[in-house]
């Protein structure tokens, strides 16, 4: 072909070991180890047994983090997921109290979540001019609003038949079911995002949507799928919420969307799109879970833990930027 100058272009990838050590995930693993050492020192009750026992309460949010990572990688955001979880939990309890078999309860929660996701997805893919923040802000208010209407003036419901939910909260050996489920889903989501054509396309959309469209990627179809799965996972999250509290109220899942986003962002997934991977999100999720369990054992108030999380979150994003600026300034000298 055209004027071949015989120039060769290398296609040897960097060694993967070097990549891991110098990555954000590498740092996060160190932080995870550090947090565990700290918790061990801080609380005499902090051990594997108690960690596994107390973990499930905090793990439900990890279900939200996984699809949220996809949404963030696309450069978008969904702040309605906490409300979806609330509505799903409410409906699941209502169905449960009619005496329906537990499988129907599970399906209800998942179906309600999926339906909410489909509503978000439909609006967002048909009105692409609208920022996801606005759309999910309004559906956040609507979904919780519907739950409020359904729950009535009491504002809460408890599941009369708790057998099924109790089963969800049990363990296989020493490991709670929810941890199994989180692990399996984490692997699946990580492979889809990191290794599959679907994942590559998600990154393309998040980095340059127009180029993605010109390259033949079905941008809207992918967005539709992701927002729908987000709803489905919110339904799953709702089931496990009910399995720890045996009920739902108007504040169920409040702020979960923020926690999920915080986990993902702390894990190195940029909210501006195109960057990060699910491994980072999962590690950061466990950092947060361990911290919550450890501090919780010594009755540190939830608000203080949130304060620490807030500082960590800002530091995680701000420090690399500041170091970069400093480096540039030094180079200029």
């Amino acid at each position: 072909m055209a004027g071949k100058s015989g120039r060769t272009i290398s296609n040897k990838p960097e060694s993967p070991i070097k990549k891991i050590i110098f990555s954000w995930e590498g740092i996060l693993i160190l932080v995870l180890i550090g947090v565990n050492i700290f918790c061990k020192w801080f609380s005499e009750y902090y051990n594997m047994f108690n960690l596994l026992r107390q973990m499930p309460v905090y793990l439900a949010e990890v279900f939200l983090m996984m699809p949220m990572a996809f949404i963030l990688v696309m450069g978008e955001i969904d702040i309605s997921v906490g409300s979806i979880a609330c509505l799903s939990a409410t409906m699941a309890c209502i169905v449960c109290n009619t005496g329906a078999p537990f499988i129907v309860v599970i399906l209800t929660a998942l179906a309600v979540g999926t339906l909410c996701g489909v509503i978000n997805a439909t609006i967002l893919t048909n009105f692409t001019e609208l920022p996801p923040m606005i759309v999910t802000l309004s559906t956040q208010i609507i979904f919780r609003g519907i739950a409020e209407i359904v729950l009535g003036s009491g504002g809460s419901i408890s599941a009369a038949n708790t057998a099924g939910f109790k089963a969800l909260g049990t363990k296989v050996g020493k490991v709670p079911i929810i941890l199994f489920l989180v692990a399996i889903l984490a692997v699946i989501f990580a492979i889809i995002l990191g290794k599959s054509t679907f994942g590559r396309r998600v990154y393309a959309i998040g980095t340059n949507r127009l180029t993605a469209h010109y390259s033949g990627i079905h941008v809207q179809k992918i967005r539709f799928i992701i927002y729908t799965v987000m709803g489905l996972m919110a339904g799953l999250c709702a089931l496990f919420l009910v399995s720890t509290s045996y009920g739902a109220n108007t504040t169920t899942g409040t702020g979960f969307e923020m926690d999920a986003i915080a986990m993902a962002v702390f894990g190195g997934i940029s909210s501006t799109g195109g960057k990060g991977n699910l491994a980072g999100g999962i590690i950061s999720a466990f950092i947060i879970v361990c911290l919550r369990v450890g501090l919780g054992q010594r009755n540190v108030h939830a608000q203080v833990i949130l304060l620490i999380l807030g500082v960590l979150l800002i530091a995680a994003v701000a420090l690399p930027n500041l170091i970069g600026q400093l480096r540039r300034a030094v180079k200029k000298q």
Binding site: M1, A2, S5, R7, I9, N11, P13
Partner: peptide, 16 residues
């Protein structure tokens, strides 16, 4: 990608 980029004679060091 290596093959195609060389075919059009791109002035690049590597494909990354």
């Amino acid at each position: 990608s290596k093959e195609l980029l060389e075919e059009v004679d791109t002035k690049a060091v590597d494909i990354f």
